[in-house]
Simulated scan of single mutants.
Amino acid sequence: MTIDESVYAASATVQRSFTPRELPGTLYLVATPIGNLEDMTFRAIRTLKEVQLIAAEDTRQTRKLLTHFEIQNRLVSYHEHNREASGPELIRLLAEGQSIALVSDAGLPAISDPGAHLVSDAVAQGIPVVPIPGANAALSALIISGLPTERFLFVGFPPRERKGLNKLLDGLENESGSILFYESPHRIKKTLAVIAERWGERRAAIVREITKRHEEAIRGTVQACLNHVEEFSLLGECCIVLEGYNETMSGSGEEGKAASSWWSSLTLEQHVKHYEALKLKPKEAMKSAAIDRGISRRDVYQSLLDQQEED
């Protein structure tokens, strides 16, 4: 996406979102529910009722939402395939004084969707852009992941091709913040497999069906999460939250490895039970623990057997 650099010149421009004006109109970025209709805010409903026009990524999906909340305003289509034609027309209407609400299929518009182009064009034309906050899948996944939230990087949807994904991961090698990905259910296994090849012992969480009836968070190492999705097919859009890099990960030998491992305070038996709690079969749970500890599954089995005999 190209941003008009003239807007960001040495002399700053100032937007006062709530200053009364006649021209131009205002572009409102309205968050919509990501699954649960109760996440729609009063402000979002009021805004959608007050604007002259609603631009939607999928008019059929948005029409259902508008019908539910008894909103009858004019609805037009704005998406990746028609943005070059629709974008200039929306900017023209805004310049003439109309207020427009932009919505995506779900969540915040302009996040990994073509709305970002419309925002850029509006800013370049001096048109006020006002956010109407609400639900967001990536941040919702982050805050329940159990991983650090002080610093994070949102990557969006990773490249489909293995080469492109590896190139992306190369650039994230030393990223210290938690890393957030979106991924489709039919690609989650392949994406995790590539990540596991280099960062199999990093902590991760897969969060799916956020705010819906079957909301689920799968937590463990990247390898453990991969083992889980290989055994249990996932439905619904997924968010991957990945632990960032920290200096202990560069430790060498068993001491460095233990320092960087979430399981270092667990006994072997507790380690295996952790994976069993994630609904892995006993053999798979032992395999996951073995991968974490850098030992063979046979060693895990024998150690547990010896422990039982001692008890």
Results as ranks from 00 to 15, higher is better:
Gly87Thr: 03
Gly115Gln: 02
Gln52Lys: 14
Gln52Phe: 06
Ala95Met: 12
Gly115Glu: 02
Thr62Phe: 04
Val51Cys: 11
Phe18Tyr: 12
Val14Ile: 15
Arg63Leu: 07
Glu70Ile: 06
Leu94Ser: 01
Thr62Glu: 07
Phe18Gln: 05
Arg74Asp: 14
Leu75Asp: 08
Val14Glu: 10
Gly87Cys: 03
Pro24Tyr: 01
Gly87Val: 00
Pro109Met: 09
Ala44Pro: 11
Arg74Thr: 15
Ala12Phe: 09
Leu27Thr: 01
Pro33Leu: 08
Thr41Cys: 00
Arg83Asp: 03
Leu53Asn: 00
Asp105Ala: 05
Leu66Ser: 06
Thr19Arg: 14
Ala44Arg: 07
Ser77Ala: 12
Arg43Asp: 09
Leu48Asp: 03
Lys49Ser: 13
Ser11Glu: 15
Glu84Phe: 12
Gly87Arg: 02
Phe42Ala: 12
Gly35Val: 06
Glu96Gly: 10
Gly97Phe: 07
Tyr28Cys: 05
Phe69Tyr: 15
Thr32Ala: 06
Leu53Ser: 01
Val103Asp: 05
Val51Glu: 12
Glu50Val: 06
Glu80Lys: 14
Ala12Ile: 12
His79Trp: 07
Ile54Lys: 04
Ser11Gly: 05
Gln72Val: 10
Arg46Cys: 07
Arg46His: 12
Gly35Cys: 08
Glu84Lys: 14
Asp39Glu: 12
Leu53Trp: 00
Ala116Ile: 03
Leu75Trp: 06
Ile71Arg: 09
Leu27Trp: 00
Arg60Trp: 07
Glu57Gly: 11
Ile34Gly: 10
Val30Arg: 00
Gln125Pro: 04
